[in-house]
Design a binder for these strands. Structure first.
Lengths: 341, 341
DNA sequence: TTGTAGGCGTTATCAG
DNA sequence: CTGATAACGCCTACAA
């Protein structure tokens, strides 16, 4: 590969001048500028990112640490991040599928010196682990994590109120026996959604039934199994709240196999409102989360911390949710159709 | 951040010795080794990746260029890539959502000097664009692209035979009027799947019906619209082949809305066999593609080209597909259940 | 407007 | 076993 020196030699100038034209960082006569650009084009020269990073100590790269996320949630959040990062000339260094703590810490260390900022979404991540494994000066945004204090920027979904509203909606439809398929153990979102579920029941004066709090892990299979288990129980709830849409889809599938009709015999609702939700049979009622927006906001926040370092104040942002009522919960509403555009 | 110099000074050794213990690249007495490690731990030192890259000219990073992919296909392919890359100590620099050619070329250039290899999945990418924008020495793997000659490693799905087999299966079930919902215009996979569809009809002596080759773009919405359009036509096919599962799901949704029963009134099949396919109502027959495996193979190939540079020979690999028959196509088979594990 | 030279943090090549 | 020292490719004062 051609280096800045090659270009300088060919164009009969110094490397400094070449650097100037590539960074617009100083006066260069029009004549030499075009000559240098021609030579550069001919030699297929473009600045070596790594070398540039070393001297400027900016990598134009954001680290993204993700857990073992499946399906549309993953792709949507990455899409949001990438689009926003690209607009500001940043790249994404992605490291995913981390579920064990030592693994995460290793990934964290491996990113050292390679990124200007970090977005970490990991249920197993806490402040001490961060302090020990990332330089204190590196801007970090915690995504859907437990946040302790305000040592870091944090961005979470309004899980609890979302779940609360959904359960409240079911109660409003007359349901009093409502099961939940819980998210992965130890997961922050899972815990908050469970909290919202419990609070809504309590506030409606409905006694909690531990046997109706079914374990899950956010996969379709878990939803399928939970419902299979549920149907084997003596008494059956009239509604099921899955802590995410993937599990709700698994639940729908199990109910269909058992010839239990939705929503006639049992109502099913989910959380996240992934794009597919509206195409389910029946269309799935869910708690809408702007997933791509979550990625966008995370990147915006970390970029702000990087670019406007001094005027940046750390804070905890929460992403609003809203109920999307379709047919799976039995509410009689004007049916929803895909967007006309 | 502490540098190698700081450690050297604190430990009363030269930087060379510190470098040796961190790279196990030379003899160091046990005594000084532990001393250096202690100092390094105390100072929270870890080698600066960028600086290391500059001298070793290895970044331990793979560039991944993706189009505007949606849903599970995207997440699965990234998962496969990341897992494989991690195992070999490589990172993934991801750049996605590229649909316009100039955009792709810019992304390509921006990766220069930042990656040891490149995996590019882009319908709009061709050999000249690559030659002009990436150093000739950079190992490149083309994913699901048109391949011209053997200038690059390439990895594609057996689209045509997969589609052929699926149509053949439908014909075997007695269908003779089969529509297709096509993939995005100009997309390589889309074209090949269409080719397989046409070939299967032709070989069965069935005349092609241009009005049953519906346009699509791989989204659920496109599948929904295509079916809506189809139902408005005078004559109606007895089976619909969607060029991917997302469109098949949209199709199912539209049929349900129109009270057309699947598979009784019309058969529906997809392509890709995304994890969700088996949870559809009815469970979706599809052409199975090992999506994560696609990512894995791509990374393995590019790593081979990097690590075993001299003994690497470029080639075109094709990923096998296989038919997964569930209920949406009306074949009477033992019903499939989610895996017991 | 242009050139010179120092240094970013490492590793690699020599000597000792 | 250990230590100087020269790269790696680039940016940036400072000098001309």
């Amino acid at each position: 590969m051609a280096t800045i020196k090659d270009v300088a030699r060919e164009a009969n100038v110094s490397v400094a001048t070449v650097s100037r034209v590539f960074n617009s960082s100083g006066p260069v006569s029009e004549e030499t500028r075009v000559r240098i650009q021609e030579v550069a084009a001919r030699l297929c020269y473009s600045p070596h990112g790594v070398a540039r990073s070393l001297i400027t100590s900016r990598t134009n790269t954001l680290g993204v640490l993700l857990p073992d996320l499946y399906g549309e949630f993953f792709s949507e959040v990455i899409r949001g991040m990438d689009q926003t990062a690209q607009r500001s000339g940043y790249h994404l260094l992605v490291s995913s599928s981390h579920d064990a703590k030592p693994e995460i810490e290793a990934a964290l260390r491996a990113m050292r010196g390679r990124v200007d900022g970090l977005i970490a979404m990991s249920p197993h991540l806490d402040a001490p682990a961060l302090v020990a494994n990332v330089p204190a000066t590196l801007p970090v945004v915690l995504l859907n994590c437990h946040v302790s204090g305000d040592g870091y920027d944090a961005l979470t979904i309004e899980n609890q109120s979302g779940a609360y509203q959904m359960i409240q909606h079911l109660i409003g439809l007359g349901h009093r026996s409502i099961a939940i398929i819980r998210g992965a153990a130890g997961n922050y979102d899972a815990e908050e959604r469970l909290r919202g579920y419990r609070a809504a029941l309590r506030d409606a004066g409905i006694d909690p039934r531990p046997e109706w709090e079914l374990p899950g892990d956010f996969t379709e299979t878990a939803g399928f199994r939970a419902v299979t288990h549920l149907l084997a129980l003596g008494e059956r709830p009239t509604a099921v709240f899955a802590a995410n849409d993937a599990m709700a889809i698994g639940a729908l599938s199990a109910l269909r196999d058992a010839d239990v009709r939705v929503p006639d015999h049992i109502a099913v609702v989910g959380f996240d409102d992934i794009p597919l939700a509206r195409y389910m049979n029946p269309p799935l009622s869910s708690v809408h989360v702007a997933i791509a927006e979550l990625g966008t906001r995370a990147v915006e926040t970390v970029l702000h911390a990087i670019v406007r370092k001094n005027e940046h104040t750390r804070r905890h942002q929460r992403l609003e949710t809203r109920l999307v009522i379709r047919q799976s919960c039995g509410a009689r509403l004007p049916s929803e159709r895909p967007p006309p555009t």
